[in-house]
Design a protein around this nucleic acid. Structure first.
Lengths: 313, 313
DNA sequence: TTCGTTGATGGAACCGGTTCCATTGGACCC
DNA sequence: GGGTCCAATGGAACCGGTTCCATCAACGAA
């Protein structure tokens, strides 16, 4: 395996010059740079990451912290972040919920250059502390002072509710998310506001974990309200609802409209069911973009980005 | 930030001794080791990964290659592997499907010490080539010469089929998995064999991608067979089936038994529905264990491990 | 008593880059 | 023509560990 000395020798320059030429600092004469680059290409030179890290004091690794991998909301975020990290020459490492133990987090902080924090529910103070150790971007949640990228589902849920009301639904149920969820607070407020304006009667159920089983469990409560449309916090809850409704002989969407994500609705061939369409990969990509900007010093911490979320159907 | 010299100074030993003490080589006097470790703890010393990598010529990073994160079968594997990696002092990086481009794979191979390869469908020759560059463990698939860890779902599917037949189901449908799936070949053979022995009539449908939508799509075909029990390749297919059956007024399990995973069955309150219970995390943990053994030279490549899969319900 | 052996330790080289600082040579200005 | 300045480059230190090799003391054997 050729190293920088080999490249330098072939190009007839010193290691220092070779390094500069390959990093494109612009401090070398153009023809020298060409010579070095050609030599590197000919030898198949690949820089040693560890050596570069050691010299530069940067690891080239980003950690994405997620509460669990079992929720299909998080995985596209990871995929998107991973794709962007690769483009930026960074490695992404997935830390599942390592935040509960401060020690584990401290250790991790020393191994990476920055964090993507997906913490829908933790306390603000703790989440903030994660950003103190290394540059961090908060995903799908906002806290003052931290850079964040969120899918603006609150607005989308409001729009959705308004549309359901406009289609004639006078009684609507919102099945809330997990206890303490930041997004749930936003969505609840938006849904209530939209229902009030449209003159629809809204029942808020929950809190309810974002799981399939919880969706099954909440079904009886939903039916009791006599509502004709239900808006669940998460797709998993919606799936549980749909399944349980099937076993109870409730016909969807005739008897009850369940607004889950468009792909589910499409697969089931349900018609005229409006639903919000969150692009998780885009969320991950954007978050990584902003983290890179932070690392490069091109951005100051605190920037808050909201991605619009379309309502389909 | 304290470094090894600081620890050595506090403990009153040289850097060399400090390094040995902290790595537990057993080459230092016990009381010296205790002193060094105490000093490290007091200073909050964390070794610099890059420096260690550079000196050792190892990166301390393992890549797990998965085709997608959207399939809930893979995510527990990742979680399990991650947990074990952490215990072993390794970092895990998730590479989504980076295998299609050989260039990307080559680049990745230089950044990591080894691979966990989850490739349910790729061609054998390509999968083998991944193991050539760096030590690798194949997950949930077997190829001669490569170390592998698989959940023995084939046997479990056979047992399941036999049990269904024993419970009086004379017509059973197996909904096969994606085209080219290694596990699907094993399961199909096992299911066919079990049905033949039990004298049950078996229809094999598919191939069918492991998605929710595919489960919905295959429902009509399942009903056409007049079967009273259906065994889907994947949970996602089973969920799609259950949903579609609900909208068609087919009562589960009275009219048709759908054998999905136990957690789903339990959540829905279905009784007497046998199902296989794959422990994905265990699969991930075991695979990582064996990779570590390969890296340490404690194992030769080629070992094939099969984890038993229980049938519940 | 003396020599060889063994176990614990320290010194120093080394991993492969980056970057500070010094050097050199040519262009430009007075 | 001599001095100044700047661009290009090389030498060497450095990042923070690991590990080879030498050293030294203690101990058992002859």
């Amino acid at each position: 395996m050729p190293d920088l000395s080999d490249v330098a020798a072939v190009a007839g320059v010193s290691k220092a010059t070779a390094s500069r030429a390959l990093n494109g600092n612009g401090l070398v004469a153009p023809e020298t740079a060409v010579r070095v680059i050609a030599a590197a290409a000919r030898l198949g030179y690949v820089p040693n990451r560890a050596a570069r890290e050691l010299a530069r004091g940067r690891t080239g690794i980003i950690a994405i912290v997620v509460p669990t991998l079992d929720n299909t909301f998080f995985t596209p975020i990871i995929a998107g972040a991973q794709a962007r990290a690769e483009q930026a020459g960074l490695q992404l490492t997935v830390a599942v919920h390592a935040l509960d133990s401060a020690g584990a987090f401290e250790r991790l902080a020393r191994q990476v250059d920055g964090f993507l924090v997906v913490a829908p529910r933790g306390s603000d103070t703790f989440v903030v502390s994660t950003g103190a150790a290394k540059p961090a971007v908060l995903v799908d949640r906002e806290i003052d002072g931290m850079t964040s990228v969120v899918a603006d589902t609150a607005t989308a849920f409001g729009t959705l509710t308004a549309r359901l009301a406009a289609e004639g639904h006078e009684r609507i149920v919102y099945v809330g998310g997990p206890e303490g969820s930041w997004q749930d607070r936003q969505r609840t407020a938006a849904v209530q506001d939209a229902a009030r304006r449209a003159g629809a009667e809204l029942t808020v159920l929950g809190p309810c974990p974002a799981t399939f089983a919880a969706g099954v469990g909440v079904t009886a409560g939903v039916l009791e309200t006599g509502a004709t449309a239900v808006v669940p916090y998460a797709t998993s809850i919606g799936l549980g609802l749909l399944l349980a409704l099937g076993t109870r002989g409730v016909e969807v969407p005739r008897d009850l409209v369940v607004s889950t994500e468009p792909t589910v609705i499409e697969a089931l061939g349900l018609e005229h069911t409006p639903a919000i369409d969150v692009d998780g990969e885009e969320l991950g990509r954007t978050a990584m973009d902003h983290l890179v900007r932070l690392l490069d010093g091109r951005d100051e911490p605190g920037r808050q980005v909201r991605l619009p979320v379309p309502v389909r159907g």
